[in-house]
Amino acid sequence: MLDFVIVIALGLVAVAVAMSFWRLLRGPSLPDRVLALDTLYVNAIALLMLLGIHLGSALFFEAALLIALMGFIGTVALCKYLLRGDIIE
């Protein structure tokens, strides 16, 4: 049963990635695109965790942790750019 559930969950998250990607392409404003990128990295963590359970491998943890750290820093840097027009002051 678990395998079946994981396949369904992978499908749902894949559709979620597609929808976030559509928002990223569509915009219409810059904050919308940044928000879409933010959602995309969280979705990527979800995909990695599901794959990890599916393949029974704990190796995906480090990748997920790095994506979480870098994604947050990226979002903050982009927001700072939108707020100030500059990242490093």
Binding site: A9, L12, V13, A16, V17, S20, R23, T39, L50
Partner: peptide, 12 residues
């Protein structure tokens, strides 16, 4: 998975 899906649906 359902909540992740709903979050992106909201975004869309």
């Amino acid at each position: 998975a359902i909540f992740t899906f709903i979050g992106s649906l909201g975004l869309l």
